[in-house]
């Protein structure tokens, strides 16, 4: 499950129009609600890139990842959980500090000033 396809190849069924891009803090994360799910969306403004993943940290099962610090490690975009600083790749979802299960990531696009997150359901 760690070998997720590159984003563009995922068969997106639904593009969800989340919120206007300016509502998302720069170089940080925010949380959106999609159906009953909490999704963390990250605005890497320095690189002009966006990533999204589950808000749940698999380590202790808390809805906190959107409040974590973001950064990169050898070019790999990552988020650090605010509770115990476990880091996850935002490209593959894999745990970079080891020890944790991988998280699910979602494709993101920005169109007409809005942030869209892609889901397969």
């Amino acid at each position: 499950m760690n070998t997720q396809e590159p984003m563009e190849k995922i068969a997106v069924k639904t593009w969800f129009k989340a919120a206007p891009a300016e509502k998302f803090p720069k170089n940080a994360g925010a949380c959106i609600k999609y159906k009953d799910q909490q999704i963390a969306v990250f605005n890497f403004a320095r690189e002009n890139k966006w990533y999204a993943c589950q808000n749940l940290c698999p380590h202790k099962m808390e809805m906190v990842l959107s409040r974590g610090m973001i950064g990169e490690e050898n070019g790999e975009p990552k988020v650090a959980c605010p509770l115990h600083k476990n880091t996850f790749s935002l490209k593959t979802g894999e745990s970079l500090t080891g020890a944790c299960d991988a998280i699910t990531t979602f494709p993101v696009k920005v169109e007409d000033g809005f942030v869209w997150v892609g889901f397969t359901d």
């Binding site: 803090p25 940080a28 808390e62 809805m63 409040r67 610090m69």
Partner: peptide, 19 residues
């Protein structure tokens, strides 16, 4: 500059076990 603060500083509070 909230984006470069540790979570606790970003929200000016101490995050606890359940978020």
């Amino acid at each position: 500059q909230p984006a470069i603060q540790d979570t606790n500083d970003r929200y000016l509070a101490n995050i606890q076990r359940n978020g």
